[in-house]
Design a protein around this nucleic acid. Sequence first.
DNA 1: TTGTACGCGTTATCAA
DNA 2: TTGATAACGCGTACAA
Lengths: 348, 348
Amino acid sequence: MQRGRVGERLPTLEDVARVAGVSRATVSRVINGIRNVDPQLHEVVWNAVGQTGYVPNRMARSLVTRRTGTVALIVSDSESHDDDPFMSRFFADPYFGRVVGGLMSVLRRSGVQLALQIVGTEDGRRRLVGDLRNGQADGVVVLSLPAVDPLPGMLVDGGVPAVMIGRPGDAVPVDYVDLANETGASLAAEHLLGRGCQQIGMISGPAEVPASSDRISGFRRTMARHGHGWVPMAAGNFTQDSGESAMRTLLAGHPDLDGVFVANDLMALGALLALRDAGRAVPDDVAIVGFDDSSAAVAATPALTTVRHPLEDMAAEAARLLLARIDDPAMRVSSVIYEPALVPRQSA
Amino acid sequence: MQRGRVGERLPTLEDVARVAGVSRATVSRVINGIRNVDPQLHEVVWNAVGQTGYVPNRMARSLVTRRTGTVALIVSDSESHDDDPFMSRFFADPYFGRVVGGLMSVLRRSGVQLALQIVGTEDGRRRLVGDLRNGQADGVVVLSLPAVDPLPGMLVDGGVPAVMIGRPGDAVPVDYVDLANETGASLAAEHLLGRGCQQIGMISGPAEVPASSDRISGFRRTMARHGHGWVPMAAGNFTQDSGESAMRTLLAGHPDLDGVFVANDLMALGALLALRDAGRAVPDDVAIVGFDDSSAAVAATPALTTVRHPLEDMAAEAARLLLARIDDPAMRVSSVIYEPALVPRQSA
DNA sequence: TTGTACGCGTTATCAA
DNA sequence: TTGATAACGCGTACAA
């Protein structure tokens, strides 16, 4: 085994061929496991590979095969300025890491690389789709943050294999993996009603984004079914701070509140803080149900009763779906919906 | 502007050249901003580019320039089995996301892509270094988890521009960005001593990893300087669960404990739980100081007094350092050490 | 079964 | 200043 030295030209197929005493084509065939090769040469070639320390050049290979062995995770932001404080919050959230972990768990097994792309401008989207069509990656997993996002449509039009995590904002024939958000919100509502809460409110995310609006509608529907045709609501933006101020707002308008469904755990953490400040005990005075079952839920005091969102599993499924679509671009468009479950802990 | 159609062959330089009525070489020059071009042609060419919807093929370009415009974030794990529950924990930690966010904040500005690589086997390392030397990425940022890791040395030997986040376990001439972990531990010790704690213990990370051992030695040294030549310790592995059980162990052996320095916030969260179970009030009975100032610190109850670890800034600096080294491989090996600061909150 | 030769889309060298 | 033409490293028809 050769020790790599700086500056030394790397061995190419040609070098291996010379050492093995065969043609470049034969070496290529052996390496790619083509059947029609003399078993004897097979061994000779592999020896030469070991001797030279040859490693295939992925770029040269991709140029001709039009396959890269890479998929990209695209975080599609809305029009963003160069200085984007939101992005740093996004990355620090458990959400991002859970998705990456789930993707990696299946991609790794297939020897597929993961690249990370952030795009937030019209120009950025055009370049991205162009690069993708050029074979920059074999396919993409899209994490779309804005309520309405032109990217999914562009990808589909461009023939780029794509899978979204979370349903697209507008109707686009694209594969996606999602959670039954309405069901999750229903579970939360029923749990609060079941423990006898009389005045139940909700802290939601931005009303425009699909995941958020689904949780709102699911919650409203179930509450209505139980005689609560109207429920007090306040909107946050999924951050802890926004949850805290939403809770204050809610409390100010409805001092008799005894139960709150919060659309994600991070905001629930903020709500807990606001309630403590207001001198309300959780769950005795006010019961809280979060959403996500993130690490924040068990870290909270009291531990959050929450709705489990199997993000890792969903991301893994998205990866599988993507690999399948890459393999067969003609595959019919499909979606996989995961069922949430209520995780009872101390807060409700 | 052309609307991309599936299957349609993408325009190449040749196509643009034909439309513009010039040679391929000229188009290339215009696109790459070479000076020696007739301003008139300049415009003609750009029009042709717009008309055809041309996007340069990065792979073909990289093949000849040996530059990819990509850097890789390598998570170097110790020998890992295919099924790696640790990895999913790692990604779910705020740590990973903060690093990615910091890196992206500077890479984005330079139009550099980020790729993600996980490697944990000897074979994986060899392939990785081979790919890297082949120009798979222009350079790498290394997050090395194991105590002793052959990867940094391999990268240096291979002439791969690399920057580590956290100092290397063994002496390797590689750039790195690190935190003054000893100083941070000292600050924690002094804070606990300053508030009058008499029996102070520590919950550490794995003793072999550099960041962890530095925190241990810094803590011990400062305690010794104040007359505490020996301090009770228990080791965890940076997870919340391990912090909880380490706290129980510590408490069992030293019931009179009134102060604990915990080597990261996640474990501190676990310690808080164990203390609550044991009926000890924080900070009145036992004061707790964490480490990292992660989002977990403010989410905790009581909010954690902790040591600020400016990971985003450090990752951003690592990215800058890497870009500089890529630009000038002969640059002398350098390291940047960040100073931690104590962030006082409720827990101590 | 093996080798020859061409093409993938660029950049870079060298004449013109 | 511009245009042929040769690399870059590889896969693969096609021929032998």
